[in-house]
Write a protein that binds this DNA or RNA. Structure first.
Length: 862
RNA sequence: GCCGAAGUGGCGGAAUGGCAGACGCGCUAGACUCAAAAUCUGGUAUCCGUAAGGGUGUGUGGGUUCGAGUCCCACCUUCGGCACCA
């Protein structure tokens, strides 16, 4: 940035002399930012602190904190941040204790990769980037309580991230209470098998050329996104979090949340609950059995073959010697494919016969057993019964390999039975015949249970959360290994800081970089430290809690503070938590699911007072480039907030971001639009000030202490009403429109009533805080504008003595009519019929009906 | 393929079932100016008409209603998500 300025300075001076600022935003914005900071205007007090007012209701308004990248802030960040800032300032003026914090999600791969490239320690570049982000945000004038700033890479912060990991490690989900409990309450043999944090061998994307593990998102068509090197699947020892134990609660408890339906649905689909049954099939000639999961137990009579996933451990056992070579070749082929590649090739079915046969428990039939990669290892039991007549995939497979297809469901009249997957009537199905599909499902489940051949069950798509990474720049696990077993560190050993490493590059093997720090790894004579680190999501799972009590050295959050800021309002049925959370949709199923999971565990363990973290969620839409395309460096359509603020000021930038359109909608940037709102702000400025001969801004001569006339009163109170209501519903664009209407109405007024102008400044303050503070001061008004109460409107001022009704004939507008406010319907009807235009339209025709909507219209039906 | 959201002027968008296009941008005319910029005032869906006025108009086709951008049904298009989940 500094280097660039040398190049652009001549251009810049030229521009600034050419284009005079419509008002001195550069001076007043810096002035008020400094003022708020020095006064701690937006510092929120906690319960128990001197000056805290417990009589005020609380309002916790939260932004998704940014990852402080080297590229700096882009225009998408301040969109949501401005929205929450308006809410925060508005609620503060409306008498709430407002918590509105900001912080940094600073662990992560980009920082580490940048560090490797430049040779600087990620802590150094991260600190630098944070300074840059903070300065950029302060320049926009956000009312954050900077005394509550958190940083996920600060040991004082991640000490508690590690502490929460220990809570997970030391607890289990009791299936009876359906709640997490201390592991000590588990009475089974192996506590390690039920811990919420556990170790498992899991297949990962391993890239030998890069010497690192990659996430699914980093693998494209079986090759690394960076460099295009081959990626293979390899089982590695990984830390997992048992989020699946919470699958049902994560679905059920969405109901009480004030979230967009689309996001709730996304989460429900991601968790993917399906009801069905497990069925046991015995292999012919052995005592071995395989269980399959099906959502359609009613079609069991139609199962004509069985498919195991290629990775299923039974494959080796059941494959006949004649088929061994073919089966192994197929398995080998699958292993080299990534998940993405496998699903990419989903168009065409592939598979191999194992030579084995299984017995269908319902009719004793002998059916062939195949392996195929359309059966996934991670879902259900990794084995299916195939009913080709009534499942699209099984049907395709059966067609390709010429396997039998047997109808067992009669579809509604007129539909082809082959490949029919809907509900119908059971046929060719013994005791199920004639039953509807739902009846048949129940019947079969009961039968299976009675025979000991299966039972009704529920499956989820959600997988346990792979929680370890082979990276340097993340939280170390507070875990040691001794004699092949893991043990948790005690809380007193936290924070566990990572070792100082000269070389934090990947090792070239699946061994994490931390393993290079031999002294650090060696915990004792007999124990070594875990060398994996936590993923970036860890820190963001609970940051909203730390904001409430950021300096607490005793606890991650004090109980009293948690109850105040995160507690539920007993007067309403809400579940409590953050009152408003604004951020992008991209976190719909990752961050927002992970955070809910952690929150519920901490709630179960008694550390929190409510079960859900975020009561109300709003997603802001993406801002596109001026060309209507997604902003990207390669397209060259990226808008830099610093440049916009330099040219038009922070207030104009804020106001434009809110005026563009509905918050939740995707919308393109328009520089001409910024000029438009900048003009509006200049008009507000000139409502109060005018320029004298010397070019100084002095009090406007039109401004005077006069009463408002009736139309002015109406505009003023309509504006107070609409702006307040629109802020509550986050309809900022229409709130701004209304203030423009106000300014259009008062621009020409001479004398111009100063009381009305002051009220406008109050209404506009949350949107354009600097300009309005300055003008508030310049009108000689007392105190700081941010501390003023929100104005109330007078409904009487909105009522007219006479109103204009429209007159429709057959629903079409034909005339207008002015009547007294309290005119009776009969009077209105008579007046409408008396109108010359109406008489012209109705002459020679019969009036069939007249609809009178008082205060609105008259519709004459011919 | 499945799920979801959305289709309104030249553009961003507004409209508790009741005057479609508020507000802004752009364009345009005028005022101010020697001139320009800035500012202020007016006009600006479309078709027919000199005008008054009238016809048409919210993706397409139906429906409900005195009245539909708004509600219902079917379809088309665009965007977003998931994607062999048995």
């Amino acid at each position: 940035m500094r280097r660039l300025c040398v190049v652009c300075r001549p251009l810049f001076t030229l521009m600034s002399t050419e284009r005079r600022k419509p008002y001195p935003f550069d001076i007043i914005e810096a002035k008020w930012q400094h003022h708020w900071e020095s006064q701690s205007t937006f510092h929120a007090l906690n319960p128990g602190e001197p000056g805290f007012d417990p009589s005020k209701p609380k309002y916790y308004v939260l932004d998704m904190f940014p990852y402080p990248s080297g590229a700096g802030l882009h225009v998408g960040h301040p969109e949501g941040y401005t929205a929450t800032d308006i809410l925060a300032r508005y609620k503060r003026m409306s008498g709430f204790n407002v918590l509105h914090p900001m912080g940094w999600d600073a662990f992560g791969l980009p920082a580490e990769q940048y560090a490797i490239k430049t040779g600087q320690h990620p802590a150094v570049t991260t600190a630098h980037n944070i300074d840059n982000f903070r300065a950029q945000l302060k320049r926009i004038g956000f009312a954050y309580d900077w005394q509550r700033e958190v940083n996920t890479t600060d040991p004082k912060y991640y000490r508690w991230t590690q502490w929460i990991f220990l809570q997970l490690y030391n607890s289990w989900l009791n299936p009876v209470s359906r709640r997490a409990e201390p592991i000590a309450t588990f009475t089974g043999e192996d506590p390690d098998s039920v811990r919420l944090a556990y170790v498992a061998e899991a297949p990962v994307n391993w890239c030998p050329a890069l010497g690192t593990v990659l996430s699914n998102e980093e693998v494209i068509d079986g090759k690394s996104e960076v460099g295009g090197h081959p990626v293979e699947r390899r089982p590695l020892r990984q830390w997992m979090l048992r989020i699946t134990a919470y699958a049902d609660r994560l679905i059920e408890e969405l109901d009480g949340l004030d979230w967009p339906d689309s996001i709730k649905l996304l989460q429900r689909n991601w968790i993917g609950r399906s009801e069905g049954a497990e069925v046991s099939f015995a292999f012919e000639g052995t005592s071995t059995k395989v269980r399959v999961f099906t959502t359609r137990p009613d079609t069991l009579f139609g199962a004509t073959y069985l498919v195991l996933s290629p990775e299923n451990t039974l494959v080796e056992e059941v494959t006949t010697s004649a088929q061994k070579a073919a089966v192994q070749a197929y398995q080998e082929n699958c292993r080299s494919k990534s998940d993405l590649e496998r699903t990419d090739l989903a168009k065409d079915k592939s598979g191999v016969f194992t030579g084995a046969f299984a017995i269908n428990p319902v009719n004793g039939e002998r059916i062939p057993v195949w392996i195929a990669d359309y059966v996934l290892t991670g879902y259900g039991t990794g084995a299916i019964m195939a009913v080709p007549a009534h499942d699209t995939r099984d049907y395709e497979f059966a067609m390709k390999f010429e396997l039998p297809v047997r109808q067992v469901v009669e579809p509604p009249a007129g539909q082809e039975w082959q490949g029919f997957t809907g509900h119908g009537t059971a046929i060719h199905s013994g005791f199920l015949n004639g039953m509807s599909t739902p009846e048949a499902k129940h019947s079969m489940a009961r039968w299976l249970e009675a025979q000991g051949q299966g039972k009704a069950t529920i499956q989820f798509k959600l997988r346990d959360w792979l929680f370890s990474r082979q990276r340097y720049w993340g939280e170390p696990f507070p875990v040691i290994w001794e004699g092949g077993r893991h043990h948790a560190l005690s809380e007193s050993e936290l924070p566990l800081t990572p070792p100082v490493l000269e070389d934090f590059r990947p090792t070239g093997t699946p061994e994490p970089p931390l393993s290079k720090a031999k002294d650090w790894v060696r915990y004792s004579e007999t124990a070594v430290r875990e060398t994996n680190t936590m993923p970036q999501w860890a820190g963001s799972c609970w940051y909203y809690l730390r904001y409430c009590d950021p300096a607490n050295g005793e606890r991650f959050i004090s109980r009293e503070v948690e109850r105040y800021w995160m507690g539920s309002d007993s007067a309403s049925p809400k579940m409590g938590g953050v009152d408003l959370y604004v951020g992008g949709t991209e976190h719909a199923v990752l961050h927002l699911l992970y955070a809910r999971f952690w929150h519920k565990v901490l709630f179960d363990l008694g550390h929190l007072s409510t079960p859900e973290p975020f009561q109300k969620l709003v997603n802001q839409g993406i801002i596109l480039g001026e060309d209507g395309q997604k902003m990207s460096k390669s397209r060259g359509n990226v808008i830099n907030p610093d440049v916009v603020i330099g040219e038009f000021g922070a207030d104009a930038f804020r106001l434009y971001e809110m005026f563009m359109g509905p918050l939740e909608q995707m919308k393109p940037w328009s520089t001409a639009g910024v000029e438009g709102v900048s003009r509006f702000l200049a008009r507000v400025w000139r409502l109060v000030l005018e320029e004298n001969q010397a070019g100084e801004w002095v009090g406007s001569s039109a401004l005077s202490d006069v009463q408002l006339d009736k139309p002015q009163r109406k505009v003023l109170h309509a504006t107070i009403k609409k702006v307040g209501e629109d802020i509550e519903t986050l309809s900022f664009n229409t709130a701004i429109s209304q203030m423009m209407i106000f300014v259009n109405a008062f621009t020409g007024a001479n004398p111009r009533p100063v009381s009305a102008v002051r009220t406008l400044l109050q209404l506009l303050n949350p949107f354009a805080p600097h300009l309005t503070e300055e003008l508030w001061q310049r009108t000689g008004s007392p105190g700081q504008l941010a501390d003023q109460p929100w104005p109330a409107f007078d409904p009487e001022a909105l009522v007219e003595d006479e109103l204009e009704l429209i007159v429709q004939i057959n629903g079409k507008l034909r005339d207008k009519l002015t009547v007294k406010r309290d005119a009776m319907p009969e009077e209105i009807e008579a007046a409408a019929l008396a109108s010359p235009k109406v008489q012209e339209w109705t002459s020679g025709k019969t009036i069939r009906k007249i609809v009178v909507v008082p205060g609105k219209l008259v519709n004459i039906v011919l």
